[in-house]
Computed example of a mutant assay.
Amino acid sequence: MREDVDEFDAYLNNLAQALGHADRHAGLKGYCSGLVLPLSRKSVEPMAAHIDPLHASAKH
């Protein structure tokens, strides 16, 4: 399980390098992480609420 997480993190870090500015990295990682969650709705609002419930509006 941990190996899968490490591979996913490495993949996201590779994608984030293409974005340029570091401020965009967290958004990409949060969005991609939300896409692989077992949620019934894959829109930004439910994903943000699941990833960081206390800051969902800021993540959204």
Rank of each mutant, 00 (worst) to 15 (best):
H21T: 13
A22L: 14
E45S: 06
D23E: 12
S33A: 12
S33M: 11
V5R: 13
Y31L: 07
L15W: 02
H21L: 09
L39P: 00
D52L: 05
V36N: 07
G30K: 05
D23Q: 08
S43F: 09
E3Y: 13
K42W: 04
V44T: 06
H60G: 01
L35G: 05
G20I: 09
K29F: 06
D6V: 06
G30P: 05
L15E: 03
R41I: 06
L39C: 06
R24C: 08
D9F: 11
Y11N: 09
K42M: 12
Q17Y: 06
A26D: 15
A10W: 03
A56R: 09
A10E: 10
V36P: 02
H55S: 09
A49H: 12
L37E: 12
K59W: 03
Q17I: 13
D6E: 14
L28H: 01
L37V: 08
R41F: 02
A58C: 07
M47D: 01
P38W: 04
M1Q: 08
P38H: 04
L19Y: 06
A48C: 01
A26V: 11
F8L: 11
H25N: 09
A56L: 05
P53R: 03
L28T: 01
L15I: 05
H21E: 06
A56E: 08
K59Y: 08
E3R: 11
M1N: 03
K59L: 02
L15H: 10
Y11F: 15
R24Q: 11
V36I: 14
P46Y: 02
G20D: 14
C32K: 06
L35Q: 14
L35Y: 07
H21V: 14
D52A: 15
A26N: 07
A48R: 00
S57W: 00
S33Y: 04
S57E: 10
Y31T: 04
V44G: 02
M47C: 13
G34W: 00
P46N: 03
L12H: 01
V5K: 14
A58D: 10
G27H: 13
M1L: 07
L15D: 04
K59T: 10
G34H: 00
D52W: 08
G27S: 13
P46D: 03
V44K: 07
S43P: 07
S40F: 10
L39S: 14
S57N: 07
P53M: 02
S43N: 13
D6W: 06
L37T: 05
V5D: 05
L28P: 01
E7L: 11
L19D: 05
M47I: 04
E7M: 09
N14C: 07
S43Q: 12
A58M: 09
R24Y: 15
S43I: 09
G27V: 15
G27W: 08
A49Q: 15
K29M: 10
K42A: 12
D4F: 14
G20L: 08
H21K: 07
R2T: 09
L54Y: 11
H50Y: 10
N13L: 14
L12G: 00
H25A: 12
H25M: 02
L15P: 02
N13S: 15
